[in-house]
Amino acid sequence: MTIKGEKRLSYMVLALPAVIIYLAVVAFPTIFSVLLSLTNYNGGPIFGNSDIQFVGFKSYIWMFTEPTGNFYTSLLNNMYIVGVSVFGQIPLGFAMAYILSRKLIKTGTRFFQSMIFLPYVISPIIIGVLFKAFIMGPHSVYMEIVRTFNPDAVFTLNTRPMIPVLLVILWMFTGFYMIIFLANMQRIDPAIIEAARIDGAKEGRILYHIILPAMTGVIITCAILAISGSLRTFDLIYAMTSGGPAGQTRVLSLYMYQSAFQGSANYPLANAISTVMVLISVILIVVTRRVGRIFGGKEE
């Protein structure tokens, strides 16, 4: 065998298994999903089914204009989740990472880091079921605490059902952002900070003039991760509320899932929702690459 032939064969043997599985499991379904959303396919065999017709954007128009406004409710909930990240998890995570990385406290940094990150590694479905028992319903800890102050309190349904969901999301993912900030803050050259200190800079000035500017790219990356994370949110809400009451806590993924797999199937609608999610992902990817190019040096 020639050297060139050996090189080519090796490349194929090494790269092809991953490429084939990836194309089959991720790339092809993505395109497939977009194509399906333009047809009237609604269950049954998909290959060789002559009833499947091309209907253009009919499903999308229906999704955007149907009277219940379920799509907008779900999208708004996704935005609330992004909001909790941007205004809650990211600032909190940043603050904690700052405290830990600047060693403002000497002992226990490892301990705090491990404890605060812990919720992130637990299955969201388990967390959902746990918090359903913990803060929702007549036998919850929440009601127990309410009753210690007001023994006659009776459990009532929450009028703003997204609030407990958002609190749990805040609880789960703050540690994740803390870890990302921590990893990047540790990459800042300590000599720069030391030089500033020798020049008499106070802690506040170090934060404002050295650490914050170095973290700009990371903060933007975190915001992007927040959006993609909100699109991924499913298990937690599925377990906590199943999107109820009356669809008030649905997010796009749950709306899609319930349209396709629960009750009377509506695949065209579900596929249209999927495509919107793919579109948002694609936009995010483009933005991420841009951000990576602008701030790339600082994130290496």
Binding site: T30, L231, Y267, L284
Partner: peptide, 15 residues
């Protein structure tokens, strides 16, 4: 990496 699996759930299920 940034693609969400939920958005390809239906085609995956059909496949």
């Amino acid at each position: 990496i940034l693609l969400t699996i939920q958005s390809i759930l239906i085609p995956l299920f059909l496949m």
